[in-house]
Nucleic acid binder design. Structure first.
Lengths: 91, 91
DNA sequence: TAGATATTTAGATGATTGTCTAAATGTCTA
DNA sequence: TAGACATTTAGACAATCATCTAAATATCTA
């Protein structure tokens, strides 16, 4: 869970997640959306992958990345737990 | 939003949030839950406060902290946006 | 198999972060 | 007002992080 939150702490990585929300993409396609070198994006992808927020699959020369909604839902669960079940504010 | 995610990236700060989920607490009470100096906890509280995840109010010598559920809900919205409205996985 | 393309790994560097001790600030009470 | 208590601010330091360039790996195709 800590890896997940740390992965979400960077704006580039959150943007990558939003891109993959739309459709699966190759590493190159993802990199094209940023003013940053490909190695830097690769590093971010590796961080997201370690957090299991995304999945990768080689397809020929490309590596295609996709969102792992299961883990995104786990993080959501953490927040639901915080919001729900609270002591009443007043009275 | 970036401040919020960065604030959530640290396990101590997430634990503070879980403590405040149960009830409002003074800085000292919060610090008592951790094997860390009071200045360090104060630093974490300041980070959570900057992210607007918690609110503070002085009561005499103490400063009482409480959870700001509004912002927690904003973060939840971010996740809902990612999970919902996706392209179907198959067929 | 050689060259081209896609991607990652390695290594370096400056910036940010989490923690500490020491000192400062704010508040209460005798 | 002096001293005690609660908390924060300041300054330092080691660890982690985001980024870069250069080099390595993997795959395809002529």
């Amino acid at each position: 869970m800590n890896d997940t939150f740390k992965a979400l702490a960077d704006p580039t990585r959150r943007q990558i997640i939003r891109l993959l929300k739309e459709r699966d993409m190759t590493a190159g396609e993802i990199a094209d959306h940023f003013a940053m070198t490909k190695p830097s994006i690769s590093h971010h992808l590796s961080s997201l992958k370690q957090a299991k927020l995304i999945l990768d699959e080689r397809q020929g020369q490309n590596i295609v990345y996709s969102l792992n909604t299961t883990v995104v839902q786990d993080v959501m669960g953490w927040f639901l737990e915080i919001i729900g079940d609270r002591k009443p504010e007043k009275e």
